[in-house]
């Protein structure tokens, strides 16, 4: 009976595994197909060559990485500074801040994207790289605050006060005592912001204007036009680099990036409820 149960359990896991990976494996296989259609016509690297020679894909990759990096760094700086301020507030005003902080997490991306688009139009800014960057910072800061503020609230105030008593200037004491204590929160907030920015399509779609593309918006315009085997090659490269990055980050730090993304999702839904 127990064996039977175990067998069904394993079979169930196997089925879901196939469901999750079958499409990805298909993409990878097709990326090495020499033909354009869905018939297997032979092994080739044609689509990879096409991919690496495409200026638009190169541009999109550059934009995606620079927006993700810039927006998550700026969001982390804004987030940490605001956390210090929010932490010093009284309970009531802190609640107001947290309520505002939760709006982007609560709202659907569609509405967030549309509302930012309307804002940029109302102010008269032409959409482009800067508007995408501003939008990404806006949806990234709440993640940083959510991961830094709990850490900050847990820190021991006496250690900071002791440093002051021993003659440290407030800024020095903060840098030497508080920052190391909240560092794990800062790192997980930064990583969360970075992955959210990398992954975003909807908000970018509405704030980008016609001139620029990120990987997501480029894929969207390509995929709508039908079969695009170079997109298969792009998927393969992105999937493999995700695996490499995850394995590396697991080796480097004990804290799994998986947990970070999980936490991001958890928080997003927790705030929503």
């Amino acid at each position: 009976m127990k064996k039977l149960k175990k067998f069904f359990g394993a079979a169930y896991l196997g089925l879901i595994f196939v469901f999750l990976y079958a499409p990805i494996v298909t993409l990878i296989v097709y990326s090495f197909n020499s033909g354009k259609g869905r018939q297997w016509t032979g092994f080739s690297f044609t689509w990879y060559e096409k991919l690496f020679n495409s200026a638009s894909i190169g541009n999109a990759v550059g934009n995606t990485l620079s927006i993700a990096l810039l927006s998550s760094i700026i969001a982390t700086v804004i987030g940490v500074i605001s956390c210090i301020g929010i932490n010093a507030l009284k309970n009531k005003s802190r609640a107001v801040y947290m309520a505002i902080n939760n709006i982007p997490l609560l709202n659907s991306d569609l509405v967030t994207g549309l509302s930012l688009m309307l804002l940029f139009i109302a102010v008269g800014v032409t959409s482009g790289y800067p508007t995408v960057l501003l939008a990404h910072i806006t949806f990234n800061v709440p993640y940083v605050i959510l991961s830094v503020l709990p850490r900050l609230r847990q820190t021991n105030k006496s250690a900071y006060e002791a440093a002051i008593d021993l003659g440290a200037k407030p800024a020095y004491a903060f840098y030497k005592v508080v920052i190391p204590e909240i560092m794990p929160g800062i790192i997980s907030g930064f990583l969360m912001a970075f992955t959210m920015s990398l992954d975003d399509f909807i908000i970018t779609h509405f704030t980008k204007g016609p001139g620029i593309n990120t990987i997501s918006t480029l894929i969207y315009s390509e995929v709508r036009r039908g079969v695009k085997p170079d997109m298969n090659a792009l998927s393969t490269i992105m999937f493999l680099s995700a695996i490499v990055l995850l394995v590396l980050s697991n080796l480097v730090s004990k804290k799994q990036v998986g947990e970070v993304k999980a936490a991001a999702g958890e928080k997003k839904s927790k705030q929503a409820v």
């Binding site: 999750l20 990805i24 993304k261």
Partner: peptide, 22 residues
Amino acid sequence: IFVFILPMWMNFLLRTYAWLNL
């Protein structure tokens, strides 16, 4: 759990496009 979460790192649009191939 790592194996089940891994597809989340693949771009959302590519994941959807992947089904078009099938």
